[in-house]
Design a protein around this nucleic acid. Structure first.
Length: 134
RNA sequence: CGGCAAGUGCGCUCUAUCGCUGGUCGCCUUCGGGUGGCAAGAGGAAAGUCCGAGCAACAUAGAGCACCGUACGAGUUAACGGCUCGAUGUCCGUGAGGGUAUAGUAGCGUAACAGAGAAUAACCGCCUUGGCGGGGUAGGGGCGAGGAGCAGUUCUCACUCGUACCUUUCUAACGCCACGGUAAGGGUGAAAAGGUGGGGUAAGAGCCCACCGCGAAGGCAGCAAUGUCUUUCGGCAGUACGCCUUACGGGUUGCAAGACCAUGUAUACCGACAAUUAAGGGUUGCUCGUCCAAUGUCGGGGGGUAGGUUGCUGGAGGCUGCGGGUGACCGCAGUCGUAGAUAAAUGAUAGGGGCUUCGCUUUGGCGGAGUACAGAACUCGGCUUAUAGCACUUGCAGAGUA
RNA sequence: UGGGCUAUGGUGUAAUGGUAACACUACAGAUUCUGGUCCUGUCAUUCCAAGUUCGAAUCUUGGUAGCCCAA
């Protein structure tokens, strides 16, 4: 598996999982991004999912309240996704070693449009904090 | 040359690295998928959801009323409230041009404040007639003064003057009242019932006449809206908005429509039979019409939750050429294959190149800043709104040079 | 994504097309030894821009912002 890929399968798509994440996860804030994280053990009871560990599932969001226009929301989501894609490698390896899985929500919560570098720094810091909490 | 007006077109690009989505061709597979190659992947507005259609469902969508929309003429179209060409009024602009309005008027309603009056008007004014006052003329008797008869008093008087009263007659001027006639004038207002001049009249008035304006008929031009006239006739029309009337159109809901599969189990719903009731419920707001029918038994069926497939992109399609039409648009021939996501792909980073603009500079060149509006969600035809900048065509007024 | 609704002082509401009204709050003044009560006054581009009209909060059109519905 290529280290930089981020296919659709690594996104959180189930409503139930999102509800559980926001109900039970721990939050934090690194300007300009708010995050929620929830880690759990991989359940070893189910024999057919004996695969490689599921690793991280992630969700990006930009509220409509802060950015009215759809193209700006899209731009920010793409920048966050790109930054996450390029800097997630260490966390995934650590999780695989500990055989844990992690749900992560990244919410861009400011009215300014920031460029790629600030977003990348923020996401690096968030990933460090999350992996330190494991 | 810079500035305008109308119309049309375009709306950044290249390379490298790392990615995303669905398609197709191989290989692997535990049949869930994985992996490699190939070609593809946002717009002129994708937006607003303001109109019009397609498509789908709803067990009838039928009739009448109500309600809503449209409303100068002709055309265009699948359809439209759009578009094209044209007509008239009005406003803006020196101009090229642009904005806006325009179905009908028999009836009804409203028009604040101001003003006589906001629509069968009549307050002031003007005028006829009548009455009263006032004024004038004439007469009568009374009173006073003068004069005369007789110098004075008293008395008398065909005399003169003044004064108030009564009677008669007149009313040119003035005041008041009444029955009428008028609509010229009354500085108000957004708006006051054709305008100017003359005649006419008791006073006035299209009451009459001339010119201008308006309406109708006729001729001519035009498919028509309408325009026009050495024509004829009519004295001549009530402004705005709403109700109303007429013609045409509208069944409702919208791809989260709907169809299928899997999961799954509240007694919602459906069918058959039996009995009972005729109240009730549904269908569009109402009426008619029409459909259903409380309950029991049997059979089917499946609430909530959370998924997948389909609907889904080949269509009133685009482009080129020829022909028709002033034009919107239409016809024929050739050619092209052009997004299909679903917590929602179409990107990020780095480096160049265009373009615009600013500063420095002797042209060259160097440096800085900017590169818009905005992201498909069933699909089309329009409209509206947002947009850095660039290009082209035609036209307008102006300045300069020859 | 598709439907629907609303916008009036700081707040909550009124207003036939004809002077934007009421209550509370805030501020200023007056009263009081001081504060409160009471009294007087002030605070509006009727969300924005065009149009219709003699005249728009109201009618029409376009925009902006906010809210609601559908699973």
């Amino acid at each position: 598996m290529q280290s930089n890929c981020l296919p659709r399968a690594e996104r959180i798509r189930s409503l139930k999982a999102i509800r559980r994440l926001f109900a039970e996860g721990r939050g934090g804030f690194v300007y300009p991004i708010r995050y929620m994280a929830l880690c759990s053990k991989v359940s070893e009871q189910e024999p057919n999912v004996q695969s490689k560990c599921r690793g991280v599932e992630v969700l990006f969001s930009v509220p409509k309240k802060f950015h009215k226009r759809a193209n700006k929301r899209n731009l920010l989501k793409r920048r966050m996704r790109e930054a996450y894609r390029l800097s997630r490698k260490g966390v995934v390896e650590k999780l695989c070693a500990a055989s844990q899985e992690l749900d992560l929500a990244l919410i861009y919560s400011t009215k300014e449009l920031h460029d790629y570098k600030t977003i990348e720094n923020a996401i690096r810091k968030i990933l460090e904090q999350v992996s330190a909490q494991l």
